[in-house]
Nucleic acid binder design. Structure first.
Lengths: 111, 111
DNA sequence: CCTTTATGCCCGTTATATTAGCCATTTCAT
DNA sequence: ATGAAATGGCTAATATAACGGGCATAAAGG
C-alpha cells in the first residue's frame, strides 16, 4: 500500500467523471458493449470499466483511445484544430526562457 | 517487455502532446520549475517530465492534476460548466437501456 | 417465460509505471 | 565570468495498474 493513498482535486475528479460518462454514453449510442470497446482498444473489460467509472489511475493513453474510438472530443471540438493548437502552444513556449528561474527579489507569482 | 508494445491513434497522441505542451507552457508562465510543480502534486520530477512530454503511460489523474494546478482547462473552457455537463451526460445516459444489445438483424452503427 | 448477453465486482498474477537518486549539461542571474 | 539552479536522461527498486478468469445479477429479445 501507498504510505499515503494520494488525493486528487475536485476539478480533476470532475473532469475524470465527465470523460468517463461521455465515453459510456457514446459507447451505448453506438450499441457497443464494454467488451466490444475494450477489445477494439486492446484492453481488458475491467480496465474499460475503470475508465468509464472515471478512475484516476488508468493510463491516460487508454482513456484517450476510448474517447477517440467512440467519438468523444478531447479538449477541442474540432479535431482538425488540435495540431494547430499544438503549434501555437509550442510557439509560445519557444519565446520563453528554456529554464525558469525566479529572481531573488520578490516577484508577482501570477498574472 | 510487453508481447505487443501497444499502439495509440494519431488523435490520442496529438491530444496528449497538446496537453503536455499546455502544461509546460502554463508552468513556465507561472515561474515554476519542474520540481516545484512535481512537489505540489506529490510526484517525482521524472513523472512530471513524462506528463509534459505527452507520454501515454502516465496516470490520467496525475496529468489532470498538473493541468488543473497550472490552470490548463480540461475539456471545457469554463470550469463551472463541468458539473453541469456531467449532469447533462448522465441524464442522457439514464434514458438509454442499462445494457446495450444489438438486435440480431443488421443495424446502423452510427448516427 | 427462458435464454442469452451485458454488466458489476472480486482475486491472484504479471506487466509496468513511479520513484529516488545520480550525473551531465544547459541556462539564467549576478 | 561563474556559480546556482533547471533541465535531460539514465538506473535499480518498488508500488501498482492491467490482466485473465470466474461468479452473480440484471436485463433485453426471442
Amino acid at each position: 500500500m501507498p504510505a499515503i493513498p494520494r488525493t486528487y482535486s475536485r476539478a480533476t475528479m470532475d473532469a475524470l467523471k465527465l470523460l468517463g460518462a461521455q465515453i459510456r454514453l457514446a459507447r451505448k449510442q453506438r450499441l457497443m458493449s464494454e467488451a466490444d470497446l475494450a477489445a477494439r482498444i486492446g484492453i481488458s473489460r475491467g480496465t474499460m470499466q475503470s475508465i468509464e467509472k472515471g478512475s484516476a489511475k488508468v493510463e491516460i493513453g487508454l482513456a484517450f483511445e476510448a474517447a477517440v474510438l467512440v467519438g468523444v472530443p478531447l479538449f477541442l471540438q474540432d479535431s482538425a484544430g488540435v495540431t494547430a493548437a499544438i503549434e501555437r502552444v509550442e510557439d509560445k513556449l519557444a519565446l520563453l526562457p528554456q529554464s525558469v528561474r525566479r529572481p531573488l527579489s520578490g516577484v508577482k507569482d501570477d498574472f
